[in-house]
Write a protein that binds this DNA or RNA. Structure first.
Lengths: 140, 140
DNA sequence: ATCGGATATTAGAACGATTCTAATATTGGA
DNA sequence: TCCAATATTAGAATCGTTCTAATATCCGAT
């Protein structure tokens, strides 16, 4: 998955799912490495290829791709949620509280949640976010 | 701090900060352990003691308390942000993707961010969130 | 090829959460 | 007691996202 096949390629061959022109340009917005886009940014990129695409379709498609496990929403706590197409390589995120910039990072070690601490939950995901100030935003 | 002195007590003695009646009832909303309230919930609790308090004041005060380091906002990715008065004991959060319930948890181990992975950032916080489905919400 | 039902797109309205505005009230110090 | 600084408030404004319902497109069956 992930690096092996491209997002567009995977969507193209997904049974029971139509890869329309709109969905294609939305998927293409995520090409390249280390992309973490807001809905608005996805719209802007999609419009470069298809100027008439609507914001509603962007939201619809983003929600579907999250549902399909192809995008991972990242709640930075600074501005709006961002969407990360890298759902296969385990990684964390580093967010600048000044400008909102976001980096993929590979933390050392892992937090485990012992059974006794799960309160009967079935775990499906875990996320670590680091916050700080980037070199350009040294601050309060 | 934290458990040693109560939030209201700390605010009462904070220089250059007026502990008004409104701010007091907002702080009192966080009494008790393991509380994670939305702004709306804070308003509801504050109104039990002061029915005429306004939502604007709740938002103003919550933002100030976060600024002062007395509340920690928790971005669960499910519903609105919650505010956690426990800013001193290191802990993580477990969120139910079904009903949005949230638990304090103590994960085992820790994620470290090596200097080489900090991209020059000065780190100020780190947060791990576990997501899953609680016993009442066994799901999709 | 054509039809028909299912699916997708769209503009714009609606919604919910939060912030802003600007007028009024309260505070604490001179 | 007076004054300036600070806090509160209702309601308007803003922002991001979802909803609505009308139109368009797709794909399989004929």
């Amino acid at each position: 998955m992930g690096a092996v096949t491209s997002l567009v390629e995977r969507l193209r061959t997904r049974a029971g799912w139509r890869l329309t022109a709109q969905r294609r340009v939305i998927a293409q917005a995520f090409e390249g490495e280390h992309v973490h886009l807001t809905a608005e940014e996805v719209l802007a990129r999609a419009r470069r290829r298809m100027p008439e695409i609507s914001l509603a379709t962007v939201y619809n498609t983003l929600n579907e791709l999250v549902e399909l496990g192809e995008l991972r929403p990242v709640h930075t706590g600074r501005g709006r949620p961002r969407y990360d197409p890298n759902t296969t390589d385990r990684h964390d995120h580093l967010v600048c509280l000044g400008c909102g910039a976001i980096h993929d990072v590979h933390g050392r070690g892992r937090v485990e949640l012992p059974r006794a601490q799960r309160f009967g939950h079935r775990l499906v995901a875990q996320e670590t976010i680091f916050r700080g100030y980037c070199p350009g935003c040294q601050a309060p």
